[in-house]
């Protein structure tokens, strides 16, 4: 069955072609997209490539999901994208601004929700927010309005005076989300944002994602849960062993399910089969 499916995927469509957005190829300069071209990364103490010649275009106005199993290279890609990690090769353009040549300006276009909210347990929540706002040069009026709005939506208002260490995992996650939105970034990048969130907060997060894409902004988030991607994403890319093994819309992924497996397996099993088939050889 696996062999059959793998062969089917190979025959159905290839993802090792350079991904395109509306027919555009990487390299063609266009504003308001995140563009990764030929990104590779091998960690200093590792022999394996965490990210291998990865090219991806993340358009505005869409919720773009980034899926992959644990250790596939999602966080590494996000860290490279946000300038936290230096790639061994390749280019990153954030709304046309090069992360390599103009990192400060490129970073100003991004709001990042980190995968680890356990960072500054000794700081109080308001101190953390003030710090982030100061880094992005958010004026007093704008930060107050922003904090008031999102603290209300995420039920965080009563926690602002507390040390971050005293907050639950979910509260810390919500604080990270709030902080990432203070400067109203054009590109909102979230690394496993749903982890630890209660249903109400998860709902709010998805609502904000949709609001932002409606406003023409970019939302790019990673997850390893297919169900989340299925409900939220307009478009997605699947990564395994540092390489993109699928990129397309949910409809394209669903159509692949139909053509690949007439028995109508779930998207989750399709995801597993994609990952499984890419484990044996090169990216699909």
């Amino acid at each position: 069955m696996h062999i059959f499916l793998s062969k089917s995927f190979h025959s159905v469509g290839r993802c090792d072609r350079i991904p395109t957005v509306r027919g555009r190829r990487p390299g063609a300069k266009e504003k308001n997209v995140i563009e990764l071209t030929g990104i590779s990364k091998t960690y200093a103490k590792s022999e394996n490539k965490a990210v291998d010649s990865l090219s991806l275009i993340i358009p505005d106005g869409r919720i773009f999901g980034f899926l992959g199993p644990n250790g596939a290279g999602k966080t590494t890609t996000i860290r490279i994208l946000c300038g936290a990690l230096e790639p061994d090769g390749g280019d990153i353009l954030i709304d046309g601004v090069s992360m390599k040549n103009n990192p400060l300006e490129a970073k100003r276009h991004i709001g990042l929700v980190h995968d680890n909210p356990e960072l500054f347990n000794r700081l109080k929540a308001y101190e953390y927010l003030d710090f982030v706002a100061d880094v992005f040069g958010v004026t007093t009026d704008v930060r107050r309005a922003s904090i008031a709005e999102y603290a209300k939506r995420f039920s965080l208002a009563d926690a602002l005076a507390s040390p971050i260490g005293s907050l639950s995992r979910g509260m810390k996650q919500k604080l990270g989300v709030l902080a990432s939105l203070l400067h109203d970034p054009q590109n909102w990048v979230l690394d496993e944002p749903m982890v630890g969130l209660d249903p109400q907060a998860a709902f709010e997060l998805k609502e904000i994602m949709r609001e932002r894409t409606k406003a023409g902004k970019c939302v790019f988030f990673s997850t390893h849960v297919m169900e989340v991607a299925e409900k939220v994403c307009d478009e997605l890319a699947i990564i395994n062993k540092g390489r993109i093994i699928f990129r397309g819309t949910m409809a394209e992924l669903r159509s692949r399910r139909t053509s690949a497996n007439e028995t109508g397996d779930s998207l989750e099993s399709l995801f597993l089969q994609l990952v499984d088939s890419s484990n044996g050889d090169a990216a699909l």
């Binding site: 860290r79 936290a84 990042l112």
Partner: peptide
Amino acid sequence: PWIKSMPI
């Protein structure tokens, strides 16, 4: 990683 992702 968080600090490095900020425009600092």
